[in-house]
Nucleic acid binder design. Sequence first.
DNA 1: TGACAATAGGTGTATATGCACAGAATATGC
DNA 2: GCATATTCTGTGCATATACACCTATTGTCA
Lengths: 142, 142
Amino acid sequence: MHPNKVPCYAFNARHASRHLTQFYDHTLAPSGVRVTQLILLNVLKLKGPLAINALAKSLEMDRTTLGRNLQPLERDGLLEMVRSQEDKRRKDVRLTPVGEQKLEHAMTLWHEAQLRFEEHFGVERAQRLLEELRAAAAAVEL
Amino acid sequence: MHPNKVPCYAFNARHASRHLTQFYDHTLAPSGVRVTQLILLNVLKLKGPLAINALAKSLEMDRTTLGRNLQPLERDGLLEMVRSQEDKRRKDVRLTPVGEQKLEHAMTLWHEAQLRFEEHFGVERAQRLLEELRAAAAAVEL
DNA sequence: TGACAATAGGTGTATATGCACAGAATATGC
DNA sequence: GCATATTCTGTGCATATACACCTATTGTCA
């Protein structure tokens, strides 16, 4: 029962997710940032300070998962979390200068990973896969 | 930065994996078994008692991850792990009758999930996605 | 304004993931 | 047969994931 034989959509999505994550994490290793963390840092860089809930909705991630994913990044000084003044429930997350530096390094390695994947898998094929992954996730939100 | 805008292959694989897993886990909930666990139980049913390493290779999973995934199933009596007599390093994992019962129930629900996904996503499209997921995982093993 | 709903976030618990390191048993080669 | 390499598994650690339940704050509306 090679995974090539397991017809479960969820299992194969998990399987691909594991292997792609390992590939990216190994490539990103010199930066000390993982691919999940890179995404968070990058969104924060592009969309400025964001509340945890807003960030979670933006990435379609579970709120509590995101909150815990932010902890090591805050601990290592890559980002800051401060209570909002207008709304004291909110905790706005923003990138620190250290975080920006790390992100810059990580992004270079990330581009390498993207290119290497496209090289092995095919550029157009990879683009289509991206669309299908998004559509598959959307298909189960009903 | 909706995930529909993040062009990272790893992130989108993770994203789809999370959402598909949630969909399957919710469907399987009445059986008390998760989709990751169902796969393990099913392989053990089909391929008989297997050592942990053999099972891990079969599913292309990390050995230590698999070992830990087996623990709750052993704890709950769905499977047994016994030291092999020919090779005392080995620990053979096999389904118990209780495990088979649970598996049977879970498989019914799993089929429902498979059908519902295919209904929403398209049967042929889903088949193609499966192939592409397998190919993508294979593409990064170089 | 005061009751109640809705929103933002935190915590406890459980599973999932994988790396580095370690120990025990077996296989190999001389 | 013995030294060595290989194989099989376990453990410590850290991150990732998400559900249930909780508190605090803000919004709504009669």
